[in-house]
């Protein structure tokens, strides 16, 4: 069996144009992790249920384990590595998760951070119900979620305080 065809796949990841050669069946999660070396995005199930692999594609959360890298070509991807504004400071969502003890083992955390970042952009002051709804596609086996919910509210506060939503 000879090697399968590979394609040059290019996308903008965390604001930087990145490319690598990979076959058509390469998952976006594997492409980010193994081809680009961005291992912050995690894989918990590879069948679209746990949300660990959530990244932002053109600003919206997608499950990178259900996305082929080649279909993400040309798009803007944000991973956990790109959430902080770049001045060495954590993003409000990252800060809130630390303040509220919203993580334990940290494996689900990148998926939550991406999900919550998009959630608060679309709905800066969510109610309790809206927070539960917003994170109801992400599994966490460690925290029991109570502190994650608190983190989301805290992040909303921090964003409101900073005034510009960034």
């Amino acid at each position: 069996m000879s090697g399968e065809p590979v394609f040059e796949i290019t996308m903008t990841v965390n604001g930087v144009r990145r490319g690598a050669r990979a076959p058509a069946r390469r998952l976006l999660s594997d492409f980010l992790r193994h081809d680009l070396g961005l291992t912050g995005t995690h894989v918990g199930c590879e069948h679209g249920v746990c949300g660990c692999c959530t990244v932002l594609m053109d600003g919206d959360p997608v499950r990178s384990c259900l996305t082929l890298a080649i279909t993400a070509a040309g798009h803007e991807i944000t991973t956990v590595e790109g959430l902080a504004p770049g001045d060495g400071e954590p993003s409000p969502v990252q800060r809130a998760f630390q303040e509220c003890h919203g993580l334990q083992c940290g494996f689900c955390t990148p998926g939550f951070l991406c999900t919550v970042t998009a959630l608060l952009r679309d709905n800066p002051r969510p109610t309790d119900e809206e927070v539960l709804e917003g994170i109801s596609g992400n599994l966490c086996r460690c925290t029991g979620y109570q502190n994650i919910v608190a983190s989301v509210h805290r992040a909303a506060e921090l964003i409101a305080e900073s005034g510009d939503g960034s």
Partner: peptide
């Protein structure tokens, strides 16, 4: 006190098993 492991884990700098051995 807040956890000292968090800044790493919150920024994708954790090193879980499959992150090693590229």
């Amino acid at each position: 006190i807040p956890r000292r492991e968090d800044p790493r884990l919150l920024t994708g700098q954790g090193r879980y098993l499959d992150d090693l051995g590229r």
